[in-house]
């Protein structure tokens, strides 16, 4: 769907037929829109409202109007900024690594002439697997007691506790996240690669361009749209990271993400006021990232017809 055709038909051509077409269109569209909004619009408005109160679910009678105090509390709290930093770090590192690995995999899938079914099947398994299962698999793999990672990495002490330090725990979380989502990235990039004209690549090759030159000068520029769409969706997805952290560390060793912090306030602490403020801020952060990526990198949203 290109956006140009998305607008209303010119006034002059408003006829009975187009009016009935419009009615039909809205009848077809309405159920989906209602369902999408039913679960999102009310809760976020409610969160917006509750965020203005001091409100603990276990002491509902002590509810007290605070105005924007909850937001001040959150935004001046070092924990919030630490978790924002963690989340952004996870987002940048995982998306960066996935871009490289994902491109390599896409390239392999693009070029390979045999065993395509096998390759496609293998790469789809991590995509389809439950994130929680991936988290468990990697948690056990990195486990000091019964994991194989310490034994397989020659430079690693056999009793190194991956979940005992900040950086190693973050690494374990990111490995699980990357493993699970690289296939998605690779497939989006494959779609981009298949748009690159083989003639252009061959012409460059005839002109004596090396493999790297062809990659940088011909292939990558021609699949820019695909890369940007992939980055946008994966970045937003990574920013919401929750499952892996919940299973692997529960936020210990300072591995908490913004989503996990929000979950803890709302669900564990019963701090509906403060937690709602966090919910709203989390929502705004996602909007901000989407906005920055779209504006800064000029992602063509009309092309972004995909979700993770």
């Amino acid at each position: 769907m290109s956006t140009e055709t998305a607008g209303a038909p010119p006034r002059a051509r408003v006829t009975d037929r187009s009016r009935s077409e419009e009615r039909l269109a809205w009848r077809l569209v309405a159920p989906a829109v209602v369902v999408m909004l039913a679960v999102t619009a009310y809760p976020i408005l409610r969160a917006l409202y509750l965020s203005l109160f001091q409100y603990r679910a276990t002491a509902p009678d002590d509810r007290e109007f605070l105005g924007i105090d909850n937001y001040v509390t959150v935004l001046t709290d070092p924990l919030w900024w630490r978790d924002v930093w963690n989340t952004v770090l996870i987002m940048v590192v995982t998306v960066g690594v996935e871009l490289v690995i994902g491109f390599a995999f896409a390239y392999v899938m693009w070029k390979i002439i045999f065993a395509r079914g096998l390759i496609r099947t293998s790469i789809l398994i991590p995509y389809g697997i439950i994130t929680v299962v991936s988290a468990f698999a990697w948690q056990f793999a990195f486990s000091l007691n019964n994991g194989f990672v310490n034994g397989w990495l020659p430079f690693m002490d056999s009793d190194f506790n991956w979940f005992g330090q900040h950086w190693s725990a973050m690494t374990a979380i990111m490995v699980s996240e990357i493993w699970k989502t690289t296939p998605f990235m690779a497939l989006l990039l494959l779609a981009g690669l298949s748009q690159v004209s083989g003639d252009m690549v061959e012409a460059a090759q005839v002109d004596g361009a090396s493999w790297w030159q062809r990659l940088y000068k011909v292939i990558l520029p021609n699949m820019r749209a695909a890369i940007m769409v992939a980055v946008l969706f994966r970045a937003l997805d990574a920013f919401r990271i929750f499952d892996n952290i919940y299973v692997m560390t529960r936020g210990a060793q300072n591995t908490e993400s913004v989503s996990f912090l929000t979950y803890r306030q709302v669900i564990e602490q019963f701090e509906l006021g403060l937690g709602s403020a966090l919910s709203v801020l989390l929502f705004l952060s996602v909007l901000l990232i989407a906005f920055v990526l779209v504006k800064l990198f000029r992602v063509d949203l009309a092309a972004a017809r995909r979700e993770s």
């Binding site: 809760p43 919401r240 989503s259 996990f260 709302v266 509906l272 709602s276 919910s279 909007l287 979700e307």
Partner: peptide, 14 residues
């Protein structure tokens, strides 16, 4: 598109 990007955790309380 906005729903696709929505942080699920923001919703669970309400």
């Amino acid at each position: 598109l906005a729903i696709a990007m929505f942080p699920v955790v923001s919703l669970i309380g309400p």
